[in-house]
């Protein structure tokens, strides 16, 4: 799976301080460490960038391109900042993100065509986030039609089914997985992507990696193309690189509904097993899901 490193993001104190002080060093260090960890793109999340949007994005893109070769994912809701960044990217960038809202269709999607960029398109529309897989599919088909009408090639479209935190709704996660499975049939050629860490938003910090990793394996089995991830979760990078086949196969067995002997498992396997069960909606989630 293609991994996009999420660690340069405005909600981080280090990042927001460095951005406002135009101090490149901490940001460049984050970029080089992410590249070294094995991710394939670097996300640059500057938020809505209300002050000096174009200057902020071009400064950041220049600073990061000075130290890493990887393609960038430009992450802002501000079309002015987005366009300024797209104009100076050396490799084909990823627009993160557009959606089916009227504003996004009018101001963000045309930038993908103009600058020949890949573009994340989420299932969000003016009515909000659709609830089940079928209504997510309906929303995304409408936006894909619009995007291809603008001349954006289908292979440049990366569909985001929107992964909600597990504490908000377990069923909602399964609907997003279902949409990933449906995509090759309903929209052949498009790619898919999720913001993986959102699934564990609100969960105890030291346990979030279990949820993220298991979700990644479940989505990969469903056919997911790409995920925005915590580059510093080394286990996650290794699972994705195929270096932990026993973990992938354990999660696949839970997905298939096989009855497994928990007493024969190591503590680590047990944690993956329990996490897979809450992720698949077999067990009601609670923040202490690993303790039962």
């Amino acid at each position: 799976m293609i991994l996009v490193g999420e660690n340069i993001q405005i909600l981080s104190k280090v990042v927001s301080a460095a951005l406002s002080a135009k101090d490149a060093a901490p940001l460049q260090e984050l970029a080089t460490r992410q590249a070294a960890s094995g991710v394939h793109l670097i996300d640059l999340n500057i938020g809505p960038a209300r002050k000096h949007p174009a200057e902020t994005m071009t400064w950041l893109v220049d600073a990061i391109q000075a130290v890493v070769e990887l393609p960038l994912s430009l992450d802002t809701t501000n079309p002015v900042a987005m366009e300024a960044g797209l104009a100076i990217c050396r490799c084909k960038p990823l627009i993160n993100s557009a959606s089916g809202t009227r504003d996004s269709k009018e101001r963000m999607l045309p930038l993908a065509k103009k600058h020949n960029a890949n573009v994340v398109i989420s299932v969000l529309n003016d009515g909000g986030i659709p609830s089940d897989a079928a209504s997510r599919a309906e929303s995304i088909m409408e936006t894909i039609d619009y995007a291809t009408g603008l001349g954006i090639p289908v292979e440049d479209i990366w569909v985001d089914p929107i992964l909600m935190p597990i504490g908000v709704g377990q069923q909602d996660i399964l609907e997003a997985v279902e949409l990933v499975k449906m995509l090759p049939d309903i929209a052949p050629g498009v790619k898919s992507i999720v913001g993986l860490s959102n699934v564990s938003n609100g969960a105890p910090r030291q346990l979030r990696h279990w949820l993220n990793q298991v979700m990644m394996v479940i989505l990969e089995e469903a056919g997911l193309y790409s995920a925005i991830v915590d580059s510093f979760d080394q286990d996650l990078i290794e699972v994705n690189a195929g270096k932990r086949p026993e973990i992938t196969s354990l999660i696949a067995q839970v997905m298939d509904g096989e009855s497994l002997d928990i007493s024969a498992m190591s503590p680590e396997e047990r944690s993956y097993y329990k996490t897979a069960r809450v992720m698949l909606g077999r067990e009601l989630y609670s923040p202490s899901w690993l303790e039962i």
Binding site: S286, P287, S288, I292
Partner: peptide, 11 residues
């Protein structure tokens, strides 16, 4: 919150 209800009961 059902998830927190479960959490407290587990503890």
């Amino acid at each position: 919150d059902i998830n927190l209800a479960k959490d407290l009961n587990i503890r």
